[in-house]
Design a protein around this nucleic acid. Structure first.
Lengths: 137, 137
DNA sequence: AAGTAGATTATAACTATTCTAAAGTAATAA
DNA sequence: TTATTACTTTAGAATAGTTATAATCTACTT
């Protein structure tokens, strides 16, 4: 309940109207302290389970895009058919379990910082993402 | 010409029949010493330019998948709508120029080796990919 | 040269995502 | 409040990338 008020404020502060759909999606994505990795499909299923009223697929896409734009989510580069998103927007890297089609955080303490000793004229680095693909042994 | 014979042998050695479509695609992908980054769309366009007879889109997909399976290509994780492939199958990383939608190799000498200090039980590392996203300054 | 397994092709089908335009809802002003 | 306005949601259509299908064709074996 008090959480909801936080989400309302969060949305309003960033210029997004706190609609019930957005609040519900906030609860799912940001309601727990844990990082959440998901595809639109994953999120749809969870909403279907947890919410009495359905939220249309278009709204789910709209909301995820809005949250991306506001920096509440970041997109992860994986070559799956689907796009993946992460509630942890800090700089960190991922394991991708190919067999389970699941992402796992790699904390910064678990990786030596990646150093790129090259500059491309006219360009600046926006992000550095490491993806470690895992296979069953 | 002598190159073509090499491609015929390469294909035959890996159990792929050396059809004229596959040989043509080999010429385009492996005919130069340079690394080649491409999407299916890129490859289609190049074939259309360089080849008198058209190659069907299905064959282009089939061939790229076959070459992936034989280890002649590797897929690169980028979050674009399209899949990207690389003729350089050695371990190396990439810049991704967001504005131009183009990939640039990062040679191993240009990056400190990425060290992951964590193991996931029952899993082994298949690959480590670093993607450095670039923006115009 | 004939038979067969594998390849190519056009096209249909499928999946993820984006677009559209109508109906609904939150914010604002009176 | 209420009315107005701008933003949202929605179902469904449209699009783009990719995969499946089934008929035709071709490379290899005998």
């Amino acid at each position: 309940m008090s959480n909801n008020l936080n989400f309302v404020a969060k949305l309003r502060n960033s210029g997004l109207r706190p609609t019930k759909q957005r609040i519900k999606i906030c609860e799912i994505l940001f309601g727990s302290k844990e990082t959440f990795h998901f595809s639109i499909n994953d999120l749809s299923k969870i909403i279907a389970q947890k919410n009495s009223e359905k939220i249309s697929l278009a709204t789910i896409y709209n909301t995820v895009h809005a949250f991306l734009g506001k920096g509440y989510l970041k997109q992860i580069a994986v070559n799956s058919e689907q796009s993946y998103y992460d509630t942890n927007t800090t700089d960190h890297h991922h394991f991708y379990d190919i067999d389970k089609d699941k992402l796992i955080d790699i904390h910064d303490s678990e990786v030596e910082p990646v150093k790129i000793n090259r500059k491309i004229p006219g360009k600046r680095i926006k992000s550095i993402e490491v993806l470690v693909k895992l296979q069953n042994t």
